[in-house]
């Protein structure tokens, strides 16, 4: 039997591109869960919200989905700050973050999803832009723009946030906030305020992630749930707060999923992510790419 080399290479390439996109979806959780220790399982629901906003902007106003997502970025940032404020007052300060805090985010996830169902129904929605239909060809390698554009947008966002975290005062404060709130206070920074800004940023990334999601695939309200496992699997595998580790994990998952879906059929691919997550949690909870 001939080994389908072209199939394998194409699966690898699209897995790589998919991985870049997964990084965009995960980066918000890398901030909220990885750095702030807030288990925001509603994050994928906010991404879907971002997708629907991009969809409206695209179908009604004819805007490019990515441009639209950047325009509403401040709105998502404020939404994130508001959610953190409620979370902080209701759970963190009461020392009740584990059970009720989790239930809170679960409730938000559900409310967002059901509201989208009530407004838009359960039909799949998609966006249109001139570049989306085209595919670049290099020999037998196909590069669909539908995957290339999200990949590039993700990488730009990732690099930008990495620079922000490493170079700015607030960025460094965010990285320190979970480990050493006392040191922060000594630096005259209010941990609560730093966390609010960081959480705002994490939700803001959902706006862009939502736009690239609806470029890659048609979206319906409950699709976010498939991403909960992916996002947390990637975040944990990548070693929680580390962006480069997260990108590596995202690409690994993207490649494995893409190969699974090419050779076994797409209905198996959701199980790959969750299988990965369960394995990571069971064998090496500090992450494959994390420090021991």
């Amino acid at each position: 039997m001939d080994f389908p080399l072209d199939l394998l290479v194409n699966a690898l390439v699209s897995g790589l591109l998919l991985g870049g996109f997964y990084a965009a979806v995960t980066i918000g959780v890398s901030i909220s869960f990885g750095m702030l220790d807030i288990v925001n399982i509603a994050h994928p629901a906010f991404i879907i919200l971002g997708s629907y906003i991009a969809y409206i902007a695209n179908s009604v106003l004819g805007l490019d989905p990515i441009v639209a997502s950047i325009l509403v970025l401040p709105g998502f940032y404020l939404l994130g700050m508001a959610i953190y404020h409620v979370y902080d007052v209701s759970f963190e300060r009461r020392g009740d973050a584990s059970m009720r805090g989790l239930a809170f985010f679960f409730g938000l996830l559900f409310i967002t999803e059901v509201t989208l169902v009530l407004v838009f129904g359960v039909d799949y929605r998609l966006v249109e832009a001139r570049y989306l239909g085209t595919t670049l060809h290099f020999g037998f390698i196909d590069l669909p723009m539908r995957l290339v554009v999200p990949f590039l947008v993700s990488i730009v966002m990732l690099v930008g946030l990495q620079l922000f975290m490493a170079r700015t005062f607030i960025g460094r404060a965010i990285q320190a906030v979970a480990q050493d709130p006392l040191a922060l206070r000594l630096m005259a920074a209010n941990p609560s305020q730093i966390k609010r800004i960081a959480f705002g940023m994490s939700i803001a990334t959902a706006s862009i992630a939502g736009a690239v999601l609806i470029i890659i695939q048609p979206v319906e309200p409950s699709i976010g749930r498939e991403y909960i496992g992916r996002v947390f699997a990637i975040c944990v595998m990548g070693g929680l707060g580390s962006f480069p580790g997260m990108l590596a994990a995202a690409v690994l998952l993207g490649v494995v999923e893409s190969i699974t879906s090419t050779f076994f059929g797409p209905s198996w691919s959701p199980a790959v992510a969750f299988g990965f997550l369960l394995l990571t949690l069971a064998v090496r909870p500090s992450g494959i790419f994390g420090r021991a």
Binding site: E226, I228, F232, A273, L277, L278
Partner: peptide, 19 residues
Amino acid sequence: LRGTFFSIATLAMAVVMQT
């Protein structure tokens, strides 16, 4: 592991089972 990992794992398990 910490409780939150258990919670995330149960979510993951639900999707694995459904698949």
